[in-house]
Amino acid sequence: MTTPIRENTASESPRAELELATRDALGALRHVAACLARRSHELLGLSCLPGPAGQGRLLVAVADDGRLERLLAELRALPEVCGAQLSRAAGAALVPAAPVAA
């Protein structure tokens, strides 16, 4: 059994939404922007929503080019981020939802 060489291939869904619960919204925003910019992820939309006691929520719409799992792993490692999930639901929109678990 040989390992397939990784190729970045787009999934069927052309876009996906990342939902991040943040401890420090401004810090998280800057780090998320840096993570996206460094590897030229295509940013389709971004929304920052206030939460209780300084917490907040970032909704990030990005093109799904097959690299999002690693992006998610990177974002989960940020101390500014206390929860992260990825949604590939077709037609998903940047609408507020219940915050992800902290």
Binding site: M1, T2, T3, P4, I5, R6, R70, A73, E74, A77
Partner: peptide, 23 residues
Amino acid sequence: CPGASVIHIDIDPSEHGKNRAAH
């Protein structure tokens, strides 16, 4: 390692699949 299966042990999950897919 063109013909190899890969088991990748790493403390940082963002390393998995970065440069080489792992079984």
